[in-house]
């Protein structure tokens, strides 16, 4: 059943509406939520929502509980290929838990937050941005690692990145929910403005596995055994551009590299010369690779997981 989570009037004959689809089976009232589309340029979650919604409705007899799917927390951003909320300077994922007496974006954030409170689990799906391509990964604040890492492993992702706490991240949806006892896992995968179908399929299987382990689903799950890495097993190295130019990668994402192996080059297209040869600083897995070719000094080109 599709319902409104938030609605607000726009100036000219239009309402902004944030919707969810509630899929309910069995007798349990427990709730599991999938949210995506906070950033309007991140679309990988669209395919996940579609596949999951379709699958669960086709297998409703195996569902026990409430599964709420929110495919577009920022509908105006998705419509206009805008990362943030159009005409609002702040990133939507920096204003949670919102403010019921604030501006429209803040009241929307507050309505979303209140709607999610109390769920057994919330999965917040992101898709990097237009600049970087990510392998499927779960990102967890170190403060919540003990609780969330076991759930994150169920999601069939390649990598679990436990990151340091930072004050600025306290206004994300995940932090806001986790800090009041509603567990929330953040998934990052793929690249902005695109859908990577095999990532979507893989994550849906992971979500079904987690649903099964939490008692929301009792059917079959098609999971391939894969090696998962947790960042605490090693270190994450950042590779930033040393100069400005055009980045031409030599590899695809998700490759194990030896120290010194070539990842790509930064070139000057006008003069036809190579400005920088980009090599791996260590043995490790490239789990982030630049997708947008133009780089400035400092632009992130790759992140590499170096296993101890």
């Amino acid at each position: 059943m599709v319902t409104e989570v938030f609605s607000s009037e726009l100036p000219i004959d239009e309402r902004l509406t944030i919707k969810k689809n509630r899929i309910k089976g069995g007798n349990s009232e427990k709730r599991f939520c999938i949210v995506t589309g906070t950033h309007g340029d991140e679309l990988e979650g669209q395919y996940v929502c579609f596949l999951l919604s379709q699958f669960l409705q086709e297998h409703i007899d195996d569902v026990d509980g409430v599964i709420d799917i929110y495919p577009a927390l920022n509908p105006l951003g998705i419509d206009s290929i805008t990362r943030g909320i159009p005409n609002f300077d702040l990133d939507m994922n920096r204003i949670f838990p919102g403010d019921p007496r604030g501006a429209m974006a803040e009241t929307a954030a507050n309505a979303i937050y209140n709607d999610l409170l109390g769920a057994e689990m919330v999965i917040d799906i992101h898709a990097s941005n237009i600049f970087l391509r990510e392998i499927p990964q779960v990102r967890i604040n170190v403060k919540n690692a003990d609780l969330l890492v076991p759930y994150g492993k169920e999601l069939n992702v390649d990598f679990i990145w436990i990151h340091e706490a930072a004050t600025v991240l306290e206004s994300t949806l995940a932090h806001s929910l986790n800090s009041v006892g509603t567990p929330c896992l953040v998934v990052e995968m793929g690249v902005g403005m695109r859908i990577t179908r095999h990532y979507g399929t893989s994550l849906v299987n992971g979500i079904l596995q987690l649903l099964k382990s939490l008692g929301f689903y009792r059917g079959e799950v098609d999971i391939e055994n894969k090696e998962q890495f947790v960042s605490t097993q090693g270190e994450v190295e950042f590779l930033n551009a040393g100069c400005s130019g055009v980045f031409i990668p030599s590899i695809d994402n998700n490759q194990w590299m030896k120290k010194g192996e070539k990842i790509g080059m930064i070139v000057n297209a006008l003069e036809g010369n190579v400005l920088e040869t980009v090599v791996s600083p260590c043995d490790g897995l490239v789990f982030t690779l630049r997708a947008y070719p133009i780089v400035y000094e400092g632009s992130l080109m790759a992140r590499i997981f170096k296993k101890n």
Binding site: D89, N129, F131, V168, F238, N240, Y296, G298
Partner: peptide
Amino acid sequence: SMDNTDINRMFPGYDKGETTQR
């Protein structure tokens, strides 16, 4: 101009980080 990040949300900065952090 390139990635729409806000320099005034990057302090104290990071000289080995992304462009606006630098």
